[in-house]
Design a protein around this nucleic acid. Structure first.
Lengths: 252, 252
DNA sequence: TCCCAAAATTCTTATTTTTGAATTTTTTGA
DNA sequence: TCAAAAAATTCAAAAATAAGAATTTTGGGA
């Protein structure tokens, strides 16, 4: 069950991030299509908590700098090593495509670092974007780091949803993909979740964290380049001292 | 009316900021004294929004780096000039007491920048801390920048709450304080809101923003030093080119 | 491999919250 | 200065949620 007002807090935060300047109650209500009275209650709660304030008298509300100080504290405690950021940056520069670091998150994989391509047509992802674990190369690069037992636990909860014609729709198909990736030496995807989107991914174990690195871009530019992109990723990983592993799909 | 689940999102965020590492559902539920099922729903909502993730498989949840990227965007759009931060730092260093920049926020004043004293006994405030507009020197330094008409609008909504023996309990008393501050050349407070806390404040108009700067510390150390602290504040403001104003309490 | 304890997840209704409409306050323009 | 419009705030019925208890799943130890 979704907690509506928790989602509303997030929507309000993103509303302000997109807007970039204060908004009155009426502007918030109109912008998010919320009833005035609901907006009034939510804003009042966040004001009383110290997370919204009125920068100018009757000039509307804006998130207080407290968000920033809390977020910095959180980020300091959950550090992604600079070497990993640099790896993504290097690979992003060399391939010219959007490059991201993925981490498992429930049924999905979440990007915890993103280096966007500058091409006019590119894969637009941001930190926090999630994609299905089983229907993406970044996801399968994480699945391949799990034991068969762990994967089976995951499959038990998985409900297959058809995002496109190429979305894998069975456990057998996913396991096949993992075996093929092992032979090939890298994970790949072709419009399984987002139409026209092609990806190449490698597992990126980091201590006990299971991460993956993925390069993704439009079909037109990337489909044929997949082997070359994989070569670029693997070369950069070796240069920077990351282990190259594609554990057997049947490993226990 | 308070929106419970909005407050819960904030509490969860601060729970993680204080904890510094991932927590399982059970740990969150115990730590915040929430029912398991409610915790389950709230965490699920934040996960689906991309604001919580599982850094390690079954290793508990942690806020995703998305908080950080959104908070940075927000902070970039609501900049407090570096000159103001430097002013607070200078004054904090020179007085040895906690120094803050206040901004109006509904019925209160919120600290949007804080430079904490390093003394073992000191005023502990953080970004986002609020204090009553009428019962603090930082607040009256903001009130003094408002026209009588605006102040009257504020007084109409004000409900007088007795925080201590010296809390001002009438409009006349507040207006008296403003007049005295005008003669004195600075605003001051003595345990009006927090017992044992003494403050000295100056208005800090910044374009159309009405800010104030306040130095606050324990009674034992600060009561007699108030004139000296005021001198330090004013000298620093003049050096750094900030206007010294104590608008008449009766200005329209 | 099985069993047990702990954690996660589901389910249902009593309770709380949401929100449309009404009211009050503030701002704008004449 | 006044009137009209816009914004903020209140309120109570309607609707959605919270959370206790039950169930299922997981991980660790024998």
């Amino acid at each position: 069950m979704q907690v509506r007002q928790a989602a509303n807090v997030i929507d309000l935060l993103e509303f302000f991030a997109a807007r970039g300047h204060p908004a009155t109650l009426a502007e918030i209500a109109d912008g998010l299509e919320w009833p005035r009275s609901s907006t009034f209650n939510l804003v009042g709660t966040l004001v009383s908590k110290g997370y919204l304030y009125e920068p100018r008298y009757r000039g509307g509300y804006y998130p207080s700098p407290r968000w920033h100080s809390v977020a910095v504290t959180l980020a300091e405690n959950d550090p992604l090593p600079d070497s990993v950021r640099q790896l993504a940056d290097t690979i992003g520069r060399e391939t010219g495509e959007t490059t991201a670091i993925g981490s498992m998150s429930s049924q999905s994989i979440m990007f915890i670092h993103v280096r966007e391509s500058r091409q006019p047509i590119r894969y637009n992802a941001e930190i926090g974007t999630t994609v299905p674990l089983h229907a993406s190369s970044a996801g399968r690069a994480i699945l391949s780091q799990m034991s068969l037992k762990e994967r089976e636990a995951f499959y038990r909860k998985l409900s297959f949803e058809k995002y496109s014609d190429t979305t894998p729709m069975s456990v057998a198909r996913i396991e096949d993909d993992l075996r093929e990736a092992e032979k090939r030496g890298y994970h790949q995807s072709d419009s399984e979740y987002i139409t026209d989107l092609v990806g190449v991914a490698m597992p990126l174990p980091l201590g006990s964290r299971r991460l993956s690195i993925v390069v993704a871009g439009p079909l037109s530019r990337c489909l044929k380049r997949r082997p070359m992109i994989a070569k670029t990723i693997i070369a950069a990983m070796q240069r920077e001292g990351f282990p190259i592993e594609l554990p057997s799909a049947s490993a226990s």
